[in-house]
């Protein structure tokens, strides 16, 4: 970090506040950050009311409402460099699962046909109008730096800020979550998909080797791979690897299916079928981005309709 203070505006759109909290998870390093930057606008913690001009604009959250859209445009006007901070800003994130439903359907469930809500009607006055669907940030403004992660590990955030401040390219490798995973990948005789919760699993063996769906091999490491060490398969919260994003013929389900079928006796087609049936979970974080959504064989709406129709 430099000694001259660099001005920063922090902003959130449709998000959970987790990216903001992760900034505080710089722990002791946050004091270093305060030394290096002048935080001018950060709705969560500062009292500065306006959005002054700043060198860096850090935006978390997806564009869900017309108001989010307007705020994003204003941030673009006020900041020299815009960082799409976190999976929601980069790919639309978890609330992008709403892609599968119309706004009317969502409003109906929350306000009208809801088990504990009486006399309900969807709000229509004074509230911000929802966009037709969730949009990643770069569909409404140009973005200079993408930092996915739900939230990104503080190390990546610190490096990203340090790089933007110094005017250099951030040091962040294009590795998948497997890169740092400590589990052993080996060929097994497993013949059926395993949910992972019906019986004890081997904590040191690769999930794919055990027939359990894990998105580690198709997910970009912006987390330092902590989950597989504590018994949890990767759910892809940082979004897909560059390989998946940039090649039209590659997809989460086909890549996972190929690897799992090589490691086990489970046919690739069975893995694809399972992942399509669980599409709303497996594609939860990045379905709103055109890089995933525009793939010709990506039929997320159809898959979700199918699973919701089964009772």
């Amino acid at each position: 970090m430099t000694t001259t203070k660099v001005s920063v505006n922090v902003e959130w759109l449709s998000a959970c506040g987790g990216c903001d909290t992760s900034l505080v998870d710089l722990h002791e390093k946050i004091l270093q950050l305060f030394d290096a930057v002048q935080i001018q606008h950060w709705p969560l913690i500062t009292d500065i009311k306006e959005r002054p001009k700043a060198k860096i604009g850090l935006i978390s959250g997806a564009v869900r409402s017309q108001h989010d859209h307007k705020v994003a445009v204003e941030m673009r006007e006020r900041c020299d460099a815009i960082v799409a901070f976190g999976t929601c800003a980069v790919y639309g994130g978890i609330s992008a699962a709403s892609l599968a439903h119309s706004n009317a359907e969502i409003l109906d469930r929350v306000y009208v046909h809801n088990p504990t809500t009486v006399g309900g009607a969807a709000p229509k006055n004074t509230v911000a109008v929802l966009e037709d669907k969730v949009l990643p940030l770069d569909e409404v403004i140009p973005v200079d730096l993408y930092l996915p992660g739900c939230p990104p590990h503080a190390n990546f955030t610190f490096e990203a800020l340090a790089a933007v401040i110094a005017g250099r390219v951030p040091k962040a490798r294009d590795e998948s979550v497997c890169g740092r995973c400590k589990r052993t990948m080996k060929k097994t005789e497993v013949a059926a998909i395993d949910s992972g919760y019906a019986h004890p699993m081997d904590p040191s063996l690769c999930f794919l080797s055990q027939g359990q769906i894990c998105l580690g091999s198709v997910t970009l490491d912006r987390c330092l791979s902590p989950c597989t060490e504590v018994g949890a398969a990767c759910t892809g919260c940082a979004g897909p690897t560059m390989q998946i994003l940039t090649e039209p013929n590659r997809d989460l389900r086909t890549e996972v299916a190929e690897r799992m079928s090589l490691l086990t006796k489970i046919p690739a087609a069975k893995v694809v079928e399972t992942m399509e049936a669980g599409a709303k979970s497996h594609y939860a974080y990045a379905m709103a981005t055109k890089m995933v959504g525009s793939k010709p064989t990506f039929l997320i709406k159809k898959w979700i309709e199918k699973i919701e129709a089964t009772t």
């Binding site: 903001d20 409402s65 978890i94 699962a97 929350v110 004074t126 929802l130 669980g278 979970s281 939860a284």
Partner: peptide, 27 residues
């Protein structure tokens, strides 16, 4: 002034993922 609509979008997801997914309601 904002709505994400989790009560609708959770439907159709795998129940086992609810702890990790609903954590994203609030960071």
């Amino acid at each position: 002034n904002e709505l994400r609509g989790f009560e609708r979008i959770l439907v159709g997801m795998q129940a086992a993922t609810m702890p990790a997914v609903t954590a994203r309601i609030c960071g």
